[in-house]
């Protein structure tokens, strides 16, 4: 397992290095002047020159890359051009909303999907299975903002159990969790539907395997064979999807953030793109890339924990 861990860790480090070079090249070295792009068509020449100096565009490129990377490593992401505040602080504030929201939504999705998937797979072709499949079809087809509006109407406006939007900050943990509940549910439902279907079909594939028949022949009931032998073998595709979903939820919640007035990463990216604040965009993109690579690393480790063949192949 240690060798598997080290080999995955090496690949994580290499991916990060390559990603940082690619992002740097795309944003900084691509043809066109970032400063004039950020300031628009009617920029004054002296403002442009000032911004160039501020962005460090007058320094040679390799040096700029090293500065950028070492800056990030020490927590210095530069200053936002629009807001004149450190990018690190802005991103950290938003991350404190987006990260808990993504984790909450993903946990909810897993909590819904596992029982639903196991239930459907154990009743292949019977009414229970057909019911679950119809529900997941609906969950995938309906957009999550529609769920969000529905949830606001029922639980915020009619029942008044939750607020309709806004975020009070983590100084009041209970209020903060309450503010994230409805958005997390709205985000989780479509993901749960996808995950249910993936788990069900992975389980059904596994249930056709010879070793399930062996398990049945030695006296396990259908249910025992499903839990003891099929579930773990069906986890690989499910883990892959969970990894993808987490990356998506971290930055892809922009519509839900908009519906619930949440100050999350999605809205930050949207605002900085519309304000052409390249420094923020660059930093957030690097952060997201880092998150995706880290999640993939964790998913790889989970694969290794689930399947001994992968460990020994490393």
């Amino acid at each position: 397992m240690l060798r598997y861990f080290l080999s995955r860790l090496t690949s994580l480090a290499i991916s990060l290095l390559v990603a940082s070079v690619v992002i740097f090249l795309v944003v900084e070295v691509a043809p066109g002047d970032p400063a004039s792009y950020m300031l628009g068509l009617n920029a004054q020449p002296d403002t442009l020159a000032a911004l160039r100096t501020e962005l460090g565009l007058d320094v040679p490129k390799p040096e700029r890359y090293v500065d950028w990377v070492t800056g990030m490593l020490s927590g210095d992401f530069g200053m936002s051009y629009t807001y004149r505040t450190p990018v690190a602080q802005m991103v950290a504030d938003r991350l404190w909303v987006s990260l808990p929201l993504a984790l909450l939504a993903l946990s909810l999705a897993v909590l819904i999907a596992f029982p639903a998937g196991l239930f459907a797979a154990s009743r292949r072709g019977r009414p229970g299975d057909i019911g679950v499949m119809a529900a997941t079809q609906l969950g995938i087809a309906l957009p999550n903002f529609w769920f969000a509006m529905l949830l606001v109407m029922v639980f915020a406006i009619s029942l008044r159990w939750f607020g309709a939007g806004g975020f009070p900050g983590w100084a009041e943990p209970v209020a903060a969790l309450r503010a994230l509940t409805l958005p997390a549910v709205a985000l989780a439902l479509p993901q749960a539907a996808i995950l249910t279907r993936v788990l069900r079909s992975a389980l059904l594939d596994t249930l056709d395997e010879d070793y399930i028949r062996t398990a049945r022949a030695k006296g396990l009931s259908r249910r025992q064979a499903l839990w003891r032998h099929a579930l773990r073998n069906a986890l690989i595709p499910v883990l892959t999807i969970i990894g993808l979903q987490f990356s998506f939820l971290l930055a892809g919640a922009i519509i839900i953030e908009q519906v619930f007035f949440l100050p999350g990463l999605g809205r930050l990216i949207f605002q900085s793109i519309s304000q052409r604040d390249l420094i923020v965009v660059e930093s957030v993109v690097m952060l997201l890339v880092f998150a995706v690579i880290l999640v993939n690393f964790l998913v790889d480790l989970a694969y290794g924990a689930v399947d001994p063949r992968l460990r020994s192949r490393a």
Binding site: E209, D210, Y211, R213, T214, A215, H229, R232, N233, V306, D307, P308, R309
Partner: peptide
């Protein structure tokens, strides 16, 4: 080759 559960 396939009669045994690969993860146990």
């Amino acid at each position: 080759m396939t009669a045994l559960n690969p993860v146990q």
